[in-house]
């Protein structure tokens, strides 16, 4: 079991302070996010969990700097976020890779400031890391859904960011590929020591992956509860502790155990 002292000793990486978001559509304003306060420590893996359309993706877009909050502020390393930054890379739900670039071209996309030799070395490293060896010259249209998603993760990792924002990255994959992708992501996370903020509507996924699960309510989204998942990786998904935490979240969201 991970001793809690290890995580609490780490410094704050991300601080969301009093964030509200109001969208105006056809003259009507809709409250999407209400008073969000959240802190994430360096190297932590946090899942934002909530029903579809609750505003968790909006929160992720605000944290990533793509959308400004209506009020409140996001700080990363103590500095306010004013826009997207290559130190923090966003991995999109689907169709995030560039279809006109090969696997190599995609992974090298963010490496335009590097000398060619270093660039080639990094591309080779991440092609291997995400298991796309042999597909260096392939275009995304020639890859499977899971490969495309791994490619996008590789493109993100290649610029050596200290944070990754993932927006339901495995949502469009079949359930077997999804399981494989989760363990791949955990392997990469442990190898590369990134801080990860991961949006999902899948309770099992959040309990399998995260150090902490931030449970969000339906719109307007508030943070309902934060659940610490104190099970070391690799997690046994039939252990009593896992089932207890999972069921706790099911109850928190108000779902029965029967289908």
């Amino acid at each position: 079991m991970t001793p809690p002292s290890r995580t609490t000793a780490r410094e704050t990486k991300l601080r969301v302070q009093g964030v509200n978001k109001v969208f105006t559509r056809d003259g009507k304003s809709v409250n999407v996010l209400e008073d969000i306060d959240l802190e994430i420590r360096d190297g932590e893996f946090v899942c934002l969990l909530g029903p579809s359309g609750c505003g968790k993706s909006t929160l992720l877009n605000i944290v990533a700097g793509f959308t400004p909050p209506t009020s409140g502020q996001v700080y990363i390393d103590g500095e306010p976020v004013t826009g997207p930054d290559p130190r923090r890379i966003f991995v999109f739900q689907e169709r995030g890779v560039f279809p006109w670039l090969t696997v190599e071209g995609n992974i090298g996309f963010g490496l335009f400031r590097l000398p060619p030799k270093e660039k080639a070395r990094r591309i080779a490293h991440y092609v291997k890391l995400v298991g796309l060896s042999g597909f260096e010259q392939a275009y995304p249209a020639e890859l499977s859904g899971g490969m495309k998603q791994r490619l996008e993760v590789a493109r993100a990792l290649a610029v050596n960011p200290d944070m990754l924002f993932l927006d339901e990255p495995f949502g469009a994959l079949d359930s077997i590929t999804r399981l494989l992708m989760r363990s791949e992501l955990l392997r990469i996370w442990e190898a590369e020591k990134k801080t990860i903020l991961f949006v999902t509507h899948d309770i099992e996924e959040s309990v399998q992956l995260a150090d902490r699960v931030v449970v969000m309510s339906a719109r307007p989204a508030k943070i309902q509860r934060v659940v610490e998942i104190d099970i070391p990786h690799p997690r046994d998904i039939s252990s009593p502790r896992y089932l207890k935490l999972r069921d706790g979240i099911f109850e928190e969201i108000g779902l029965a155990h029967k289908v």
């Binding site: 793509f66 290559p86 999109f92 560039f98």
Partner: peptide, 27 residues
């Protein structure tokens, strides 16, 4: 043009001119 592609371009720190050249043009 997909908004995700434009956002990805901005995310990787491309200047507006580079966005035109590397994202908009191929799109």
């Amino acid at each position: 043009i997909l908004p995700t592609h434009l956002n990805a371009g901005r995310n990787f720190g491309l200047s507006p001119a580079q966005i035109v050249l590397k994202v908009i043009y191929p799109s």
